[in-house]
Each structure stands twice: as C-alpha cells, then as structure tokens.
C-alpha cells in the first residue's frame, strides 16, 4: 500500500517538473531517427539494429530518470520526513524503483509505433521483436536499479547522474575483459556483463538464465540501495 502511494507520488513528480517531458521527447526524437535511418539504409523489416541503438540512448537517459530519486530528497531534507513516517526503507526504495520503471515502460511502449510501421508496410518476424522488447525492459530495470543506488550516494543530482552513467556503461562493456587478463576469467566477465545477455533477446531467444540474471541484478542493487540509505544509522 505504501509502495503504491510512494510510486504514485514519484510518478506524478516526474510530470510536475519538465524532466519527464524533456526525456520523453528527446528519447523519442533520437529513437525515431535511429529507426528511420536504419530502415532506410537496410530496407529490412526488423528492429534488431534499432534496439541496440535504443540501448545506447538509454545509457544516457536512464541516469537522468533516476538521478533525482534520492539525491533531491536528501538535499531538500524531505527524506527525513519520509523515513520518519511508518514506512519501511524497502517500501520507499521499491516505490521509487517502480515509478522510474513505469516511466521507462511508457517510453518503451511509445516506440511500438515503429513496430506498427513495420507491420503495415512489411512482414517482420514478430518473435525477435517481442523478445527484444522484453530484453529492453529487463535491461532498463537493471539500469534503473543501478541509477537509484547511485542516487543514494550523494545530495547532488549531477553527481548521481554521472556515477549512475559510469556504472551502467561499465556493466555494459565489462564483458570485454573476458580472456584479456590471461587466466580463465572468460566466463565470469561475460556472465556479469549486461550486454552479453542482451544479444539473445534481440535474436529472438528468451533464455531463462538471462531473465534470472537480470532479475537478480535488479534485486541485488535494490538491496544495496536499501543498505545505502541505512548508512545514516551507522555513523
């Protein structure tokens, strides 16, 4: 019940300020540009290449969605009001997480227009498109969990965004370390990497291990977030 109340407020707060409108509009502008350029160049009724470009766009936009969630409340002091209400820390974190996730899902859903264009004028293979969207959704959830964690580390939204972006990018490219360190690290870094699991989704494969990986990534970082807001109690 509290989770829902917090989620509702946070979601509204995105629209009280211009953040949601700016992020939405510019994300759609870029996504539309990628989609149409790729379509014009490849003449292929598929979303595959466009989806990789959505991810790159998302890398920049996800920190902007998450940066304010805790940093702003810490700066203005409203966090103290929130944490002294009969609300569990985990409820606050989940409320904020689901608010950001809903905003992201809304952004993602609005790109379905492009799928509509493909269906109208071509004959796309719908399997990889749906699994790709599932992958994008799960990946976005991971980015948001990381971003929320970054937001608890500081009072400054800018720092929260920069730290969030760095974490996201690092987890996206950490697979490159595979095999380069000389010992048998291949499987570890490939497994940790967010991108290696994403490939299957775009190809149309829903690998249960990948789903479990993304979900446990989210759970882990939400757990760390809860611990991070408890840090005030250890000082």
């Amino acid at each position: 019940m509290n989770i829902f109340a917090i989620m509702k407020r946070e979601l509204k707060a995105y629209f009280y300020s211009p953040i949601a409108y700016v992020v939405f509009a510019l994300f759609l502008l870029l996504a539309g540009y990628f989609f149409s350029m790729i379509l014009l160049l490849s003449k292929e009724a598929s979303m595959r290449a466009a989806m990789y470009n959505f991810v790159i766009t998302l890398l920049f936009f996800a920190p902007l969605i998450t940066m304010r969630l805790f940093a702003e409340e810490r700066k203005t002091g409203t966090l103290e009001v929130l944490m002294t209400r009969p609300v569990r820390d985990i409820e606050v974190v989940l409320g904020k997480f689901f608010a950001a996730l809903s905003l992201y899902a809304l952004m993602l859903a609005s790109t379905l227009v492009y799928v509509g264009v493909l269906v109208k004028y071509g004959n796309p293979d719908m399997g990889p498109i749906w699994s790709g969207y599932l992958g994008l959704f799960l990946l976005g959830a991971c980015f948001i969990a990381l971003g929320i964690f970054a937001s608890t580390l500081t009072e400054s939204q800018i720092i929260a965004a920069v730290v969030g972006f760095a974490f996201m990018l690092l987890f996206w490219v950490i697979g490159w370390l595979s095999g380069t360190l000389g010992f048998s690290t291949e499987s570890i870094f490939t497994y940790i990497s967010l991108s290696s699991h994403f490939d299957d989704f775009v190809r149309g494969i829903i690998d249960f291990r990948a789903v479990i990986y993304y979900l446990s990534f989210v759970v882990f970082f939400l757990f760390v977030t809860v611990k991070s807001i408890e840090v005030r109690k250890w000082k």
């Binding site: 509290n2 109340a5 009280y16 203005t76 002091g77 409203t78 009001v81 209400r85 609300v87």
Partner: peptide, 24 residues
C-alpha cells in the same frame, strides 16, 4: 524537521494527503 522540508511542486492538499496515506 528543522528546515520544514516540503515537496515544493505539490499542492497543499496533495502533500498533506500523501503524508496521510503514508501514515496508513
């Protein structure tokens, strides 16, 4: 709290109702 932290972009009623909701 000391600095009267409030959500500046909510209306008075929205804010008080939100806190009431958190108070179950």
């Amino acid at each position: 709290p000391e600095t009267t932290p409030l959500y500046m972009d909510m209306t008075v009623k929205e804010y008080v109702s939100y806190i009431a909701e958190l108070k179950k």
